[in-house]
């Protein structure tokens, strides 16, 4: 709602300014129109200048065109040197009418009318236009100041928000860094534990393998010894059994009886 009202105020101000500018332009045009008319009536055109010079000519008691005709006839005769000089002077005046006006210095009347128009126009402008322009400029400046203040406020708020975001971002980065560090530490710990466990298991496996090899070796030796023993005992038993004939049996019995009898 507030923004809409502000937009409406902004929309009205250019329209009022345009109306005032249009009014000022009309006033200026009118001043030029009415100021230029007296200047044009001053006879400043070449024809008016020539007519004025002819009317002002006086020779031989005559005026105007008649005086000019008499002067030309007199000068043509060459009798009157003064007539020739006057004709030449008159022709120079006419030539002066045909000369272009000074591009820098205007005519006095033009300066007067221009000055009057300028004063009138300046007074009007001072009375109406300048205050309006000044008010417009002030409002414009005030609006710009408000806008600048609002912009500064917005910028400050934005900076605060940005600072907040940056702080949060920094916190998030720090938290992420901590999480990554913790994860890396955990991963390192897990890796170390896995390596240690693997090494331990490998050592145990190696030791168990060594023990198994040693046990297998001992078992093989024991089996071999047992087999050798069985073979040797069996062979001895076979040899002894073959050699135990009746005489040997009797001899063994007699020996036993003697041994028992000798015990006491």
């Amino acid at each position: 709602m507030t923004a809409r009202i502000q937009d409406g105020g902004r929309a009205r101000r250019p329209s009022r300014l345009r109306r005032r500018a249009f009014a000022g332009a009309l006033i200026l045009l009118a001043a030029l129109w009415f100021g230029a008319s007296p200047v044009a009536a001053a006879g400043e055109t070449p024809g008016a200048c020539v007519a004025e010079k002819v009317e002002a000519l006086n020779f031989g008691g005559r005026h105007g065109g008649e005086a000019l005709a008499i002067l030309k006839e007199t000068a043509a005769t060459g009798v009157d040197v003064g007539a020739e000089d006057k004709l030449k002077s008159f022709e120079k005046k006419l030539e002066g009418c045909l000369e272009a006006p000074n591009p820098i210095i205007p005519e006095v009347t033009e300066i007067i009318w221009g000055g009057i128009a300028f004063v009138v126009l300046f007074a009007l402008m001072q009375w109406k236009l300048f205050p309006a322009v000044k008010r417009g400029m002030d409002r414009r400046a005030e609006k710009i100041r408000d806008d600048l203040d609002a912009a500064e406020t917005a910028r400050t708020e934005a900076l605060e928000v940005k600072a907040g975001y940056e702080a949060e971002l920094a916190d998030a980065r720090a938290e992420a860094g901590r999480i990554v560090d913790a994860a890396r530490a955990d991963a390192e710990q897990v890796r170390a534990e896995l390596i240690a466990r693997a090494e331990t298991e490998a050592d145990e496996l190696r030791q168990r393998s060594d023990l198994d090899v040693e046990a297998a070796k001992r078992q093989a030796l024991a089996d071999l010894q047992s087999e050798v023993e069985a073979i040797v005992i069996g062979a001895a038993e076979t040899v002894i059994g073959r050699n135990l004939d009746h005489d040997t049996q009797v001899q063994l019995i007699e020996s036993y009886i003697d041994d028992v009898g000798s015990q006491n």
Binding site: I233, I240, G241, Q249, L252, S255, D259, V260
Partner: peptide, 22 residues
């Protein structure tokens, strides 16, 4: 016994057999 004698008197045993030697 294979050879020789083994005598048992009560709990007492006097063994002179070839089997025992083996």
């Amino acid at each position: 016994v294979m050879g020789g004698l083994v005598t048992r008197i009560g709990d007492e045993v006097i063994d002179g057999s070839v089997r025992t030697r083996i």
